[in-house]
């Protein structure tokens, strides 16, 4: 434990091009870029598959990608693309490409699963009252799919944060550098400190996203709706709405 305090206590570790501040910034930056790229591909695709019911094999295919080891993929991509790219791009492009590919399955599964789990009667009613396809998608399907979609986003973010750490092995920046360099130098204060920072970052991001999800999802879907019991004219109430779960996790 002392070595951790020592490492965190040293002001030199906090600033500069390889200080905690810079590494944290890099980590967040990789995460943001990766999520943007992956979401831009996976979310529309997931919505499309869910809405039209076509191309379900895409989701199955993406899910089976779980079995491919992240580290192996990262190293293979770096070995292949690295020499072809100039300067820092040799590290960032292959890593971020792999990070983005790995973020696709949970995003896709969340978006598809969310739309797929929308109550059939509600969808039927949406068409029945005269909504057009797009109106059904945006006014009914997407709002009802949000809990699962956002679960997918949360899984993807956690996964990217974790995988970005591993991407320090083929040379990416970010908090993983402390761990990899620390182990290489037998500086376990640095390695442990880096590990702790990553863990705290992951938990914090998860917390923030969970709060965001609470704000975005309609209270009618979360069982947090305000006030009162239902008691008036009969007892045949609907079953309690359970928190919908789909396993969106791929390995990290």
């Amino acid at each position: 434990m002392n070595i951790l305090f020592e490492w965190f206590g040293d002001p030199a570790n906090w600033s500069g091009a390889d200080g905690i501040g810079q590494r944290l910034w890099e980590h967040l930056w990789y995460t943001a870029v990766t999520m943007l790229v992956a979401s831009a591909v996976a979310l529309p695709l997931g919505l499309w598959v869910g809405h039209t019911g076509r191309g379900r094999w895409l989701v199955t295919l993406a899910n089976s990608a779980r079995a491919v080891p992240t580290l192996g993929l990262l190293l293979a991509a770096s070995l292949w693309l690295g020499p072809k790219l100039p300067g820092d791009f040799a590290y960032t492009v292959p890593s971020i490409a792999v990070l983005a590919i790995l973020a696709v399955p949970p995003l896709l599964a969340g978006a598809y699963g969310g739309i797929d789990s929308v109550d059939g009667a509600a969808r039927d009613a949406a068409y029945g009252v005269g909504m057009r396809g797009r109106q059904v998608l945006w006014q009914v399907e997407v709002p009802n799919a949000l809990p699962l979609m956002l679960s997918g986003v949360r899984s993807a973010v956690l996964q990217v944060v974790a995988t970005a750490t591993i991407a320090a092995i083929p040379g990416l920046g970010g908090l993983g550098r402390f761990i990899i360099d620390g182990i290489a130098l037998a500086d376990y204060g640095q390695a442990g400190g880096g590990a702790l920072l990553v863990a705290v970052l992951a938990v914090l991001l998860e917390g923030i996203l969970a709060l965001l999800q609470r704000r975005l999802v309609s209270p009618g879907l979360t069982g947090r709706a305000v006030g009162g019991s239902r008691n008036d004219d009969d007892s045949a109430g609907p079953e309690e709405s359970a928190d919908p779960t789909v396993d969106l996790r791929t390995s990290v």
């Binding site: 434990m1 974790a162 750490t165 591993i166 376990y188 590990a195 702790l196 990553v198 863990a199 938990v203």
Partner: peptide, 24 residues
């Protein structure tokens, strides 16, 4: 369980010896 699952694997491998007192 969700919180534990949140911790990245590399971080857990490195921190684990500090928690259970084993060699790294």
């Amino acid at each position: 369980a969700g919180l534990l699952y949140t911790i990245p694997s590399l971080a857990l491998f490195v921190v684990m010896p500090l928690i259970i007192g084993t060699q790294i």
